[in-house]
Amino acid sequence: MNTENEHESVDLVDGTVVRQFARAALLAALMGAAALVTIPYPLSPAPVTLQVLVVFLAGLYLGPLWGGASIVLYLAAGAAGAPVFSNMTGGPGVLLSEPTAGFLWAFPIGALVVGLVVHRGLTLRDPADVPLPIVVVGLTAGLILIYAGGTSWFAWLIGTSLSEAAVTVAIPFVPADLLKLAAAVVIVRSGTIDTV
């Protein structure tokens, strides 16, 4: 038999997976675009962007698995050279050497935790139907994890104590991030966005 002409049949990707995947990819691109949307914020030396809000939305509207995957796609595209990190930087060097890269590494875990708490597992629910306290607890847990990642990375890289690191990279941003948490709650209560 001539093996040259043997072809495996086409293994189509399931329709639901395609929809979730396309949404995850576009949300990853939105995450990159949000790096340019800065909020004027007096306390911070670095620009405050809407990226944490997009991490919340990933967990809320894509669930733990696809939400986390979406942020991983964002990091992978950035590592491959897309200018998606703050100040339009890209490339693997940012993930390896920037003092605030710990926040980037913690973003996928944050999205995962928000998704797990709000959807109580892997099956997606409409976040608008989830009781408000659960949404708030989920978002807060995600935010705390992001801060934990960012603070411990900075302390490790610069060689400061955890509390000094928190004063430098975490505490000044708390009011801005609480604003984004409130914005995520407003978006959920508006009920205008559907899950797949």
Binding site: A22, R23, L27, L30, A34, V186
Partner: peptide, 27 residues
């Protein structure tokens, strides 16, 4: 707060509309 949530709602719904069209085209 109002500005951030407006950008969030409009940005995400536009992105998801594009994603749903993209998913159809990919299939």
């Amino acid at each position: 707060l109002e500005r951030a949530s407006t950008i969030g709602i409009l940005g995400l719904s536009r992105a998801f509309t594009r994603a749903d069209r993209l998913a159809l085209a990919m299939q």
